[in-house]
Nucleic acid binder design. Structure first.
Lengths: 112, 112
DNA sequence: TCCTTATGCATAATAAACTTAGGTATTAAT
DNA sequence: ATTAATACCTAAGTTTATTATGCATAAGGA
């Protein structure tokens, strides 16, 4: 995921947020959407994505619906109610992280 | 480091930036400084810090100076020239990361 | 005096999240 | 016919952190 190690730990947040916007998506679609939105900055590898989706499903945050399109099988993922709540949590954590890092990195933010 | 997984990958950036401000610091001092600046939000564990410092030293980004204070040995770390350059890189990567995540998470940032 | 907390360093076992490298299968394009 | 794109998947290995230790000195309270 990009040359920076900072993205480690943010994949779940990204997946949840995308599903929160798009109602339902399938795995490959997520990789393409992220590449498109970030103009190539961020590429989700499938080796990271699929295990992450499976874990989110196992944790009850996502539910699955299979669909055949053009004789190809797609696995659509959709947020559950629990997944919606967790999305809010993850987004709050991201804002908190960004705030904290800006304070650490730009001392001006820490002054009052 | 906090309950959020997002901090994974940012320890090196934090260390480099602190040393960039403070000229030289020792390990324990770094943990205390981070706790203080972030008002307890972020606590650097020693099990993460010391290996990270050793790696930065091995990579030639930090140099060491031992000092005895109150009969206790302190290991002061200081940025090398290479370390200074890498600090700039890491800070740029952090800004890039934040920008990308905001675009992903807040679609408004992506419109033009 | 004894015990805990703080200071200061360190490593080893485990866990989590990722990369890299494969594998299968269909469709579209050259 | 072969490559690229679509669409899913897993396994081995790496990185980065947590948790749990260990050692040692200093300070403080019961």
């Amino acid at each position: 995921m990009a040359n920076s190690k900072l993205y480690k730990g943010s994949l779940t947040t990204i997946i949840l947020k995308l599903l929160n916007e798009s109602d339902k998506m399938y795995g490959y679609e997520i990789t393409q959407k992220v590449k498109e939105i970030t103009k190539g900055e961020l590429k989700i590898t499938e080796g990271a994505l699929y295990p992450a989706l499976h874990k989110l499903e196992a944790d009850g945050l996502l539910e699955v619906e299979m669909k055949k399109v053009d004789n190809r099988l797609r696995k659509y993922y959709k947020l559950t109610e629990k997944g919606n709540k967790e999305t809010v949590n993850k987004l709050n954590e991201l804002q908190e992280y960004i705030k904290t890092m800006q304070i650490l990195v730009n001392p001006k933010f820490g002054l009052e």
